[in-house]
Write a protein that binds this DNA or RNA. Structure first.
Lengths: 164, 164
DNA sequence: GCTTGACCTTCCCACGATGGCAAGGTCTAC
DNA sequence: GTAGACCTTGCCATCGTGGGAAGGTCAAGC
């Protein structure tokens, strides 16, 4: 099976399949005479495993450890469970941080008139933090848990009037 | 004030102050005769503003827009509020995704004996998703909301027995 | 005056995970 | 035989941050 088919069958892009191979997450793929990578069902299975672990928020590195555990027939389920629960703990830390942010922002926004006047407690808080409106900060702990992206159009929409 | 003092006073590292200047988030700092950057209280104020916006999860780009709104005396508070609430919405999307992950993982872990035997529903699920244990996936939407870090020692601790 | 150490400068590299593009080779269907 | 879909490798960009090198500057102590 070509890489394109394996990508389609697993949901992992061809680009990422090559990347995973390059960093050693996947074994080097078999090659056919023409140099094309060749995948079988077992490979696709591994790719799906990876895809799913990534969807559950495991880093690529952690995914590698899960793969190793999966292949290790003498593993102890306690280790797998501990590993998973550590990740859950990381996720929950991150969730708490994000929730602290939304709490603060919603609180500030609730005091904002949201009309044509310039006065705004949100900006006031940013400009002079610790002056009363602010709750305890979120202070993002640089988590391994999420990943950023190129800015989409999302935030742009709120910008209309202020800039035109 | 030297960059080191400004960093200390604002909580933004000297490294990041230079970076923010280089990308245009901050105006170019005044220079003294020896070439050192020179900061005053207003600069420190801007830096604190930035620091705080970043702590609330705004991207650097979004922080620039907030700074522009703050400086725009003819702004409408409605624009600030809309901007903030769009960010809240992004944060909540991310929170939901993370919660879906923890839900799934906790569910799987609850069925894991967590003993010395190898059988583990967590790995089973990763290996054969969609076969019953799995709830709807989180499918991370590549959010602008969080940031990753170099893997700490956190996950390592769960690895002991499996690898040694 | 001279040395030491703490600062500052710019520049490059790295991370994590992913996409994009370019230049070239291969295969398949017509 | 040609077009178009595929494959290969390789480099660049993202986003935010830290690390470090190589060199200039300054202040304190001798």
């Amino acid at each position: 099976m070509n890489i394109g088919k394996a990508a389609e069958a697993s949901g992992v892009s061809a680009k990422m399949i090559r990347y995973y191979e390059s960093i050693g997450l996947l074994a080097k793929a078999a090659r056919r005479e023409n140099g094309y990578r060749d995948y079988d069902e077992r490979d696709v299975h591994d790719l799906r495993f990876i895809k799913r672990a990534r969807n559950l928020g495991f880093s690529v590195e952690a995914t590698g450890e899960l793969l190793a555990l999966w292949r290790d027939k003498s593993r102890a389920s306690a280790d797998v469970k501990a590993f998973a629960m550590q990740h859950v703990s990381d996720l929950e830390t991150k969730i708490s941080e994000l929730q602290a942010m939304t709490r603060t922002l919603r609180h500030l926004a609730s005091h904002c008139h949201g009309d044509a006047r310039p006065e705004c407690p949100i900006l006031d808080d940013l400009a002079t933090p610790g002056s009363g409106e602010t709750e305890q900060d979120a202070q993002v702990s640089r988590g391994r848990v999420l990943r950023p992206r190129a800015a989409g159009a999302g935030l742009r929409s709120a910008r209309r009037a202020a800039t035109t």
